[in-house]
Amino acid sequence: MQTLDEIKQLIASNIDLGGADLSSFGADAPIFGEKGLGLDSLDAVELIMLLQKKYGITIENMQQGREIFKDLGTLVAYVDANRKK
């Protein structure tokens, strides 16, 4: 739960969500696409850089990216399991 809040805060502070309120999104909220947070490809650059800076995490390939960025819950699980910072 702590990591979920931390990631939501990280996204809210660094990515333009077009006024969306992140507190209303749960772990099952999709990160990309129209439903959920609605991030797009350029936001992916920001998110990848944020994960790298804050947690020392790198996304190796698109297949991995697809799994990690499925929703907030999968991202949180990956960060918890792989964070270096």
Partner: peptide
């Protein structure tokens, strides 16, 4: 492709 190819 996914995420506009930015991961690659």
């Amino acid at each position: 492709s996914d995420f506009g190819g930015v991961v690659e």
